[in-house]
């Protein structure tokens, strides 16, 4: 006997993600999913983002990490709610893990939730968490070939941050060429070259994400 199923392998995750999306919408929360390789500077970027925005809106962070809570400790000093998820070996966060921690969060008070995914450009691209959009973070020290090697994450993202541009003079990183390549993969992507530690380009990124948050809370009010 032949049984036809046409069942998506990610169906369970997709269902959960949809539920999370509903929770974010009901509470007018902008949820973003930050994805990069290990060491691209997600946590530093987040620290600077919190410095710039924590005074004007309530932000919470969900930290995905395979084993440690080092990143969460760094962010707690910023006076925002930080929830740690240890995936115990798993290479990505899934929608069920997010659903589990949303229950613990003061949702009525929040304007934005930043999910810092496990450092990995492959698997997190595949798992919808219910976020408004994914942001991929690429860094100069990783080399110019990341977009070509991991096209899916650039295709799935709404914005891409190219971090550590202050290091360009010391590497063979070709900024223009990398931007062209990323645009070939996804012409709709917003691209922000920044140095999170030195501050270059951070203003444009912060003001974009601020506008996205305002857009979300405005559309919810309609």
């Amino acid at each position: 006997m032949k049984v036809f199923m046409a069942r998506d392998l990610l169906q369970t995750n997709a269902g959960m993600a949809q539920r999370n999306r509903g929770v974010f919408s009901r509470h007018n929360i902008l949820a973003i999913n930050l994805i990069s390789s290990p060491g691209a500077g997600k946590t530093t970027l987040l620290e600077k983002m919190l410095d710039a925005l924590a005074g004007e809106m309530n932000i919470a962070v969900i930290e995905g990490d395979i084993y440690t809570s080092r990143d969460a400790q760094r962010l707690e000093d910023k006076g925002v709610e930080v929830i740690q998820i240890n995936t115990a070996g798993a290479c990505h966060l899934d929608a069920g893990m997010i659903a589990g921690v949303l229950k613990e969060m003061p949702l009525e008070k929040l304007d934005m939730i930043v999910i810092e995914n496990v450092g990995n450009l492959v698997c997190p691209a595949e798992f919808d968490l219910g976020e408004d959009f994914k942001i991929s973070v690429l860094s100069v020290s990783e080399g110019s070939d990341k977009p070509a090697k991991y096209p899916l994450i650039f295709r799935q993202s709404r914005a891409c941050i190219i971090n550590k541009i202050d290091l360009i003079p010391y590497t063979d990183f070709q900024l223009e060429q990398v931007i062209d390549e990323i645009k070939d993969i996804n012409g709709n992507l917003e691209i922000f070259p920044v140095s999170a530690t030195k501050g270059d380009g951070m203003g444009a990124w912060i003001s974009w994400i601020r506008d996205m948050q305002k857009g979300k809370s405005r559309s919810a009010g309609e």
Binding site: M1, K2, V3, F4, M5, A6, R7, D8, L9, L10, P147, A148, P151, R155, E181, K183, D184, I185, N186, G187, N188
Partner: peptide, 27 residues
């Protein structure tokens, strides 16, 4: 990785096929 349109050069394209990940049938 040239996902932009070869006809009008627009970078705004959407995926029709290639994102499938499903069980079709079993016997």
């Amino acid at each position: 990785l040239k996902y932009s349109c070869p006809q009008c050069v627009s970078g705004r394209t959407s995926i029709v096929e290639g994102r499938e990940l499903f069980v079709e049938y079993f016997e």
